[in-house]
């Protein structure tokens, strides 16, 4: 179930100056399942707080606009990430976020183009389209490179977590944020449960 633990190696301060230090190598994976009322829950964001965690190097998050919807419905990113918002419909969309979290309004832009938003502080941003009211998405910015979003079966895998016990938090749409302790030393499946 659990992959071999490998010492986590950081390229801490590898580059002097303002360039962010990058998380370069792997620890262990934390695998888990999210449930609400005993049933699998998709689109749950689970993240592990690790003091001193660095930036994940391979992150290039995208929130696509296609078929009058956002894809994915729930996107988790690390604070500081630049999210791409491409429009792949022939109609215009007007993406905005006016609630908590990052506030922005991208205006109208045509098919084949994209806009960028930097999520520079932790928290939930609720994303809407002002033209198509059915379009709703959530971007959860977390101050950790160790996060995952559950799939349709409620399963998630948080990759390359440094060895040890770490506090975790979990969020889902319409529910409260819950937390606990997750171990990357154990082969136990982390169960994230709402009543």
């Amino acid at each position: 179930m659990r992959r071999a633990s490998i010492a986590t190696v950081y390229l801490a301060a590898a580059v002097a100056g303002s360039s962010p230090a990058v998380l370069a190598s792997s620890g262990a994976d934390i695998q888990g399942v999210a449930q609400v009322g005993g049933k699998p829950q998709a689109n749950v964001v689970v993240w592990v707080d690790v003091p001193g965690a660095l930036t994940r190097a391979d992150s290039k998050p995208v929130l696509d606009q296609r078929n009058f919807d956002f894809n994915p419905r729930v996107l988790a990113v690390q604070v500081g990430s630049v999210v791409e918002f491409p429009n792949h419909d022939r109609v215009f969309h007007n993406v905005f976020s006016f609630h908590d979290g990052k506030k922005f309004d991208l205006g109208l832009y045509p098919t084949g183009t994209m806009k960028l938003v930097t999520f520079d502080k932790p928290g939930l941003s609720r994303i809407f389209c002002n033209i198509h009211p059915h379009m709703v998405a959530y971007v959860m910015a977390v101050a950790s490179p160790y996060f995952a979003v559950s799939d349709e079966a409620g399963r998630f895998t948080i990759r390359d977590v440094p060895p040890g016990n770490h506090p975790y938090q979990a969020w889902r749409s319409g529910g409260s944020t819950i937390g606990g302790t997750a171990s990357s030393n154990s082969e136990t499946v982390l169960a994230v449960r709402w009543p």
């Binding site: 215009f92 007007n94 905005f96 006016f98 309004d105 205006g107 109208l108 002002n130």
Partner: peptide, 9 residues
């Protein structure tokens, strides 16, 4: 013509 800025279209 369409123009949009900061929530005003």
């Amino acid at each position: 013509v369409r123009w949009m800025h900061e929530g005003v279209q």
